[in-house]
């Protein structure tokens, strides 16, 4: 098991995949991080040197990911709501925010548009 920014990964996990488990890291960002530390795209977590793991952890701890990012998103939505804007209200009601029709097909909005957007996050060790 390799310990990366508060999370454990089995040695056979791809570095790319393990980075992308963090909220706020997608394909583009993970590619950037891996290029920065010269990790090839198919590298497994187990093959990383200790120094690289430390570097990665340091890099991740300086980034706005996971709960910090969730909080920022939620704060933005809460600000809209507190100002009493239409967008804030739509968020609070779980309805489309940007003028889409609501007659059908609003499941995505129902799922995502809430004040506590992004959820609580999974508990990490």
């Amino acid at each position: 098991m390799v310990f990366l920014n508060g999370s454990n990964f089995t040695e056979a996990t791809l570095v790319k995949r393990s980075l992308e488990t963090f909220f706020g890291i997608g394909p583009k960002v993970s590619q950037g991080i891996m290029a920065k530390f010269h990790i090839h795209p198919w590298a497994k977590v187990g093959s990383l040197k200790n120094a690289t793991v430390m570097d990665l952890t340091a890099e991740l701890s300086n980034m706005k990911i996971e709960n910090d990012l969730r909080r920022e998103v939620q704060d933005n939505i809460r600000r809209l709501k507190d100002m009493g804007t239409y967008r804030g209200r739509r968020h609070a009601m779980g309805l489309p925010v940007r003028g889409q029709r609501t007659r059908t097909q609003i499941t995505t909005a129902r799922r995502l548009n809430k004040v506590e957007r992004g959820g609580q996050g999974q508990t990490r060790l």
Partner: peptide
């Protein structure tokens, strides 16, 4: 094809790997 490890070669200009 980027399937093996790589690392920059120290003191190379421009950087070699």
């Amino acid at each position: 094809s980027a399937h093996t490890e790589y690392a920059p070669l120290p003191d190379s200009q421009p950087t070699q790997y």
